[in-house]
Amino acid sequence: MNRRRVIGKILASVGTLLFVVVFNFFLFRVVESDPVANLYRGRNLSQEQREELRREFGLDGSQAEQFARYVVQTAQLNLGRSYVSNEPVASEIARRAWPTVALVGVSALLSALIGILIGIVAAWRRGSKTDYVSTGFTMTTYSMPDFWLGMLLLLVFAVGLGWFPVGGIADPQTGGGLERLIDQAHHIVLPAATLTLAYLGEYALIMRSSLLDTMREDYLLLARAKGLRDVAVRNRHAVPNALLPVTTLLAINIGFVLSGAIAVETIFSWPGLGLATFEALSGPDLPMLQGLFLVFSAAVIVANLAADLLYSYLDPRVRTA
């Protein structure tokens, strides 16, 4: 019964993914009827050359033929070729995924960790000065747009103080090995700080309210009556229960942050998927965009599935329901 639920959830996610694949095809067909005409605007192309380009881009034949070809190719992880670089989109995405995974991974973990800790302290000392200060701080960062926060940090710490590089992932002149790793760590500080600050508020606020709800529960009174120290009551009984909604949020956010880093990556010229999206938009590099949309959607779907499975692992009530 348990296994059936898991399989059901996986199948539902696969179904959603298939829908996205289909939707993606039509979305880009609605956007533009003739990319070749658009891309080679102002150049004199013979009819043969046009036909040749159309075939190269996979735009020949009827809509149904195109769709069939698209489905088969997507199933083979062939996402077409970029209009701009003429590289396969799949390898382009794979190459640019790592910087994003590093940036998003670091900032998602940091924002969750810091946010949760702030939320715990604020809730446990509700109404204290600590609570007011930390809630005020998180409210402020939560309401700041990430691109604005990024520009602010860039201006102050890179342009003004010169503590950190203005952009990019590494200085082209640095050597390899450890030296390169340190250089990359230096480069990641500002974009990661931006994303961390932008996202920790959400965790802090949700953790705070979740813990405040939990603190009214009878089992905490009972834990205190047993003779447990306050800290033990908090860490063993209150926090594990209050963390449940936050874990879901974290899993879902990781899915969204992949695509949500577009603005921050663009500001810091971080060569990840977000910057790739920005570049593809200005092309417009339709196959690249199509591929990116697919990857972003897949990330959200997978993250949702992970959240679902994780929640049922953490909460025994969901497991058997």
């Binding site: 009878d218 089992y219 009972l222 003779g227 229960n241």
Partner: peptide, 24 residues
């Protein structure tokens, strides 16, 4: 006080359905 709690006197709380930690 913590040492006396539960060893000298213990309590069965009012809310029978909510007095146990649901995830333990």
């Amino acid at each position: 006080l913590r040492a006396v709690r539960w060893t000298e006197a213990s309590i069965v709380l009012q809310g029978a359905l909510h007095s146990l930690n649901p995830v333990q």
